[in-house]
Amino acid sequence: MEKKSKVKSQKSKLTEGEVVHVANLAHLALAPKEIKKIRDQLSEVLDYVKILQQVDTVKIVPTSQVTGLKDVFREDSVQPSLSVKDSLSESKNSEGEKFKVKSIFQ
């Protein structure tokens, strides 16, 4: 599996297209002059993390939780929670008891 995965090869400079694609995925708008700068900076970091390729991890189990807890349950009891008024208190665009959002479908 690992061998097949896509890792940027030796000179791993991102293309401007890749930078714009990632920005779109992350819902971030970049100014044209930002693109080049960010491209260089992201490429620098991608170059650094390549050192992990020196380590053989084929037989290693990944760690996502360091203290070993899993399946943590609690009583499903009703607790006091925020009022609608408090929940809406920080919104800049609400109507009645609802948040107003942009339409998704035209």
């Binding site: 970049l30 900076q41 290693i60 189990v61 990944p62 760690t63």
Partner: peptide
Amino acid sequence: KRRIMLGTYYLSAGYYEAYYLKAQKMRSI
């Protein structure tokens, strides 16, 4: 912005195993 974009890249289709999973394995080591 830099951090969000780099994370988005690491987690995007095709790169997850090469980066995030690899890092979690190194984390075990």
